[in-house]
C-alpha cells in the first residue's frame, strides 16, 4: 500500500497510457455492437495487422534512433497511415467475408459469433505462418526480414527515445506517455464529433436506434455498416501505433490478450457507448497498475476482472450505460 502511495504518479501515468490503447481498441467493439448488436471477436486481429503494418513501414523507410525531428515526425505519420489503412482494410474484409453473407440470410446472432471466432483464428494463424505462406510464392528469401521467425516477437525499430518532459510528483513524464494519452483522447474527440455532427454519423446513429426505420428514411444500411467497421478498424490501427511506441514489440497472437482487455473495457464503460469505451479503457489501465502495486503483478488480470464483476453487479449496463443511440445524442 505504501508503495502505491509513493509511486502514485508513475503508476497513474503508465496506467493511463496503456488504458488509452485499450480504449481505442474498445471503440471497435463498442461501435460494431452499437450498430449490429454483435461482438466482433475478430477485432483483436484487426489491431494485430495494424501493428505489423506499422512495424513494416518503419523497416521499409529505414527508421532508426538517430533520425532528426522532421524524420521522426514523418516516420510516425507513416506508421499511422500504414496501420490505419491496413486495419481499416482488414476490418472491412472481415465484414464482407464473415458477416455480410450471414446477415443476408438472416442467420441468428450466435452463428455470427462463431464466424467471428473463426475469422479471428484464420487471421492470427495466417500471420503466424507468414513465412510458410511467403514460401509458397517463393518470396521467403526476398521478404526474409519481414517473414522469418514468424511466431516470434517482432520489434519496432526504436525511432523515439523516451525522454522526461516534466516532473509530476517525482515521476518523469516522458514524451511518449504524453503523446499516447493526448493522442488517444484527441482521436476520441474527433470520432465523437464525427458521429454526432456528420451526415454519416447521423446515419450510424439512426441504424443503431432502429434499423428498419432508418432504412425507410433512405439510409443505406449496408453502407453504414461498412463505415462502422472501417472506423472501428482505423481506430484499432491508431491504437496499434500507440501500443508500439509504448511497448515496442508485436507478435501474431498479440491481439488475443489485448482483445480480451479491450472488450472488458468496452463492457466496463457500457458497451455501445463511445465515451464509455474511453472511460472503461482508462479505468481498466489504472486498475491493473494499482492492483499490481498492491497485490503483486501476477494478480494483475485477476484484479481487473474482479473490478469488472463488481461494477457490473452494481451497474449492469456499465459505467455510462449501454446503447449507441441514446447516451450520445
Amino acid at each position: 500500500m505504501q508503495f502505491l502511495i509513493d509511486n502514485f504518479a508513475a503508476l497513474t501515468i503508465t496506467g493511463l497510457a496503456i488504458g488509452a490503447v485499450y480504449a481505442l481498441i474498445a471503440l471497435g467493439y463498442t461501435f460494431v455492437y452499437g450498430v449490429l448488436r454483435l461482438i466482433n471477436f475478430a477485432h483483436s486481429e484487426v489491431f494485430m495487422y495494424g501493428s505489423f503494418a506499422a512495424v513494416w513501414v518503419v523497416m521499409i523507410l529505414g527508421g532508426n534512433v538517430s533520425g532528426s525531428t522532421g524524420q521522426v515526425i514523418f516516420w510516425v505519420a507513416m506508421m499511422f497511415v500504414a496501420a490505419m489503412l491496413m486495419s481499416g482494410f482488414v476490418a472491412v474484409v472481415i465484414e464482407r467475408v464473415a458477416y455480410r453473407p450471414l446477415r443476408k440470410r438472416n442467420a441468428p446472432p450466435l452463428i455470427a459469433l462463431i464466424s467471428a471466432i473463426g475469422a479471428s483464428f484464420v487471421l492470427s494463424e495466417a500471420m503466424g505462418l507468414r513465412e510458410k505462406i511467403a514460401r509458397w510464392f517463393g518470396l521467403d528469401d526476398t521478404l526474409r526480414d519481414y517473414v522469418s521467425n514468424s511466431r516470434n516477437n517482432v520489434p519496432l525499430p526504436t525511432i523515439i527515445k523516451p525522454q522526461g518532459v516534466f516532473n509530476l510528483f517525482g515521476y518523469e513524464v516522458t514524451n511518449v506517455d504524453i503523446f499516447v494519452i493526448v493522442g488517444a483522447i484527441a482521436m476520441m474527440i474527433v470520432l465523437d464529433q464525427f458521429v454526432s455532427r456528420s451526415r454519416l454519423g447521423r446515419g450510424i446513429r439512426a441504424v443503431a436506434m432502429d434499423p428498419e426505420a432508418a432504412a425507410l428514411m433512405g439510409v443505406n444500411r449496408d453502407r453504414v455498416i461498412r463505415v462502422t467497421f472501417l472506423v472501428g478498424g482505423v481506430m484499432a490501427g491508431a491504437a496499434a501505433v500507440f501500443y508500439l511506441l509504448k511497448i515496442g514489440i508485436t507478435r501474431y497472437d498479440v491481439g488475443f490478450i489485448l482483445g480480451v482487455k479491450a472488450f472488458t473495457a468496452a463492457v466496463l464503460g457500457g458497451i455501445g457507448n463511445l465515451r464509455g469505451a474511453l472511460l472503461g479503457g482508462f479505468v481498466l489501465g489504472l486498475a491493473e497498475n494499482y492492483g499490481s502495486a498492491i497485490v503483486g503483478t501476477q494478480w494483475k488480470d485477476v484484479v481487473s476482472f474482479l473490478l469488472l464483476i463488481v461494477i457490473l453487479l452494481f451497474r449492469p449496463t456499465g459505467l455510462l450505460g449501454e446503447s449507441l443511440g441514446k447516451a450520445r445524442a
Binding site: 508513475a10 503508465t14 496503456i18 511497448i247 490478450i257 491493473e288 497498475n289 499490481s292 503483478t297
Partner: peptide, 8 residues
C-alpha cells in the same frame, strides 16, 4: 508485454 507495474 506491458511491464509498467514491474518497471515502476
Amino acid at each position: 508485454t506491458d511491464f509498467s507495474a514491474t518497471v515502476t
